[in-house]
């Protein structure tokens, strides 16, 4: 089965969108990342004022790697984090945004990620971790972030980490392409079972 066939299989299901939930602590850059993912890059994101903190949830759409994503971004404030589990259970994929320039809160980020993954139970939705703000001078390397998040202990979930920067848009394409590929293969294998 060639790639094109796979793609057509995927598209054969209609114009269905993959729902992806974007989580991460407050001020980790979720809204900025989604803004950077919009297909027509408007003015460079760095010149725009940073988006205000998200309260509750925010919907957004983007397309990458032939997959159309419907992204739900949930606020990362302490009070909103209890909502994460609910959105995670309804999503097909998880994008977890980490502020790589804030080593203090990596441990909080790890604890919250573990809570969310534990709430998902036996679900095997792919997890994309974006080490945001990697262009900052004091940012940690994305492998250090992976270590701090104890990603090696995450079992049963396909995961990928990549350094990203919402300001410059670097690394985003790589990460989302991985996510699209992962979703396509799981979709194809599910089709094969039927």
């Amino acid at each position: 089965m060639g790639l094109l066939e796979k793609l057509s299989l995927w598209l054969g299901g209609g114009a269905r969108e993959v729902s992806v939930v974007v989580l991460g602590l407050d001020n980790s850059g979720k809204s900025s990342l989604l803004r950077a993912l919009h297909p027509p890059p408007r003015t460079p994101a760095a010149e725009e004022p940073p988006p205000p903190p998200t309260v509750g949830t925010r919907q957004d759409h983007f397309t990458a790697g032939g997959v159309s994503f419907s992204a739900v971004e949930v606020g990362g404030g302490r009070r909103h984090r209890a909502l994460w589990e609910r959105h995670y259970r309804a999503a097909d994929a998880l994008i977890y945004v980490v502020d790589a320039a804030d080593p203090l809160r990596l441990v909080v980020s790890r604890s919250e990620l573990q809570l969310v993954l534990a709430a998902g139970g036996a679900r095997r939705v792919p997890l994309l971790v974006l080490a945001n703000k990697s262009d900052r001078p004091d940012a940690l390397h994305h492998l250090q972030v992976a270590q701090a998040l104890s990603l090696e202990q995450v079992q049963g979930v396909p995961w990928h980490i990549c350094a990203a920067s919402a300001a410059s848009g670097a690394g985003l394409a790589e990460g989302v392409a991985w996510l699209a590929r992962e979703l396509r293969t799981t979709h194809a294998s599910r089709k094969g079972q039927h």
Partner: peptide, 9 residues
């Protein structure tokens, strides 16, 4: 994976 501790080091 639930962390039951009250404090994160």
């Amino acid at each position: 994976m639930g962390n039951t501790s009250r404090w994160l080091d």
